[in-house]
Design a protein around this nucleic acid. Structure first.
Lengths: 201, 201
DNA sequence: AAATTAATCTTGACAATGACAAGATTACGT
DNA sequence: ACGTAATCTTGTCATTGTCAAGATTAATTT
């Protein structure tokens, strides 16, 4: 898995482009994102990414896919920190992980939710996004004791919880809910807990 | 205020560019937006917009400013439809107007909240955005009988309500809350009412 | 092991774009 | 009427996405 930089073939270009793409996205935002800048930061020609991702949208889709996986991992990580709590506390913990991810990767978070919902075919992006959604649906199922896909009231809970945490995260990273910097994690978490608690009466 | 197309000066180019810019934004999204395409659709040279808006960000800021004004008008319009209701129903009506705007102008809505919160200087964008926020703050003040700027609990209400309706709108226009098309307005409104109601216990 | 095929990456080109500079045309104030 | 400022055009350059053609290396077959 080495990357001999003096050889014609890179060896692991696809992974390197994704990694560099995330860095460019984090630094410049989606506006300053360009295929050529990513290629340059990896040290390959401007046209090398095309073979792995097709066009620009292909690389952005790959970044969003990787983003959804880390997004799910962030929610699970917060849950794992308090394994013995009840379903409600587990669901709140997921919400905190949701916010963690948005704050740690705001541009990627925006990218993931800016594109229209991908076709539910067998695309990796659609699968990764669905896995994250299923995490929420499972959490509500445990809270209510019934699947949201069978009980409309539980699906309403899903939408209420999702809307609340998503709106909070989106407004937070836009700097519209308070001072962009400074608020310690404890306060931020407590605020989201209180607000999110209302969404699951 | 006529627009003699055969004269050297346009006469009302600034307004025409904003109008055309909104059309381009609605059709192609922010990704396909370009200064030159807007200029071409108005029938002026590719460099004409620069004198009125400086660079591309200048035009986008102007579009966002106009967007916030119509955004506020959409909320007030829904409120005006039921003038004799109590503060809670008025606030819910504002939320429906929030969603109305997001659905009618999704690309513009995304633009308005995608940029970082503008500097609170005397920019028109910051003023228009603040006016929309003040509408929400006033609604909560009427509901609770105290200003959110004096009572932290009321400010928490503001954040809860804003997060909920914003998240719902953002997920809705991304096609993630249900079928992108088809749902009649009545169902959509009823769903948002029920969810938003939880945010103001 | 040698040859053929496939995959990977480079080079070159083209049109579209944002930004800038310089000039042409018109409006406006004195 | 004159001079100044505002408005708009033309021309240019660097950057970008996309495509086509070729060079290099890896994989597969024989």
């Amino acid at each position: 898995m080495l990357k001999p930089k003096d050889s014609y073939h890179h060896g692991d270009l696809r992974a390197a482009l994704i990694k560099a793409g995330e860095a460019v996205l984090a630094e410049t935002g989606v506006a300053g994102f360009s295929l050529r800048s990513v290629a340059k930061s990896v040290g390959v020609s401007h046209s090398a990414p095309a073979h792995h991702f097709g066009d620009a949208k292909g690389l952005l889709d790959a970044l969003a896919t990787e983003g959804f996986r880390r997004f799910l991992a962030a929610m699970q990580s917060r849950q794992a920190a308090e394994p013995n709590k009840d379903a409600r506390q587990q669901l709140l913990a997921s919400g905190l992980g949701y916010l963690d991810f948005a704050i740690s990767s705001p541009a990627l978070f925006r990218l993931m939710f800016s594109t229209d919902k991908p076709e539910p075919k067998t695309s990796e992006l659609a699968e990764a996004a669905k896995a994250a959604f299923m995490h929420l649906a499972d959490g509500v199922a445990r809270l209510r004791g019934v699947s949201p896909f069978e009980e409309p009231a539980a699906m309403t809970d899903v939408m209420a919880i999702w809307s609340t945490v998503h709106g909070f995260a989106d407004l937070y990273i836009a700097g519209r809910l308070g001072p962009p910097e400074g608020k310690p994690v404890a306060d931020r978490d407590a605020l989201l807990r209180e607000i999110l608690d209302r969404a699951m009466p």
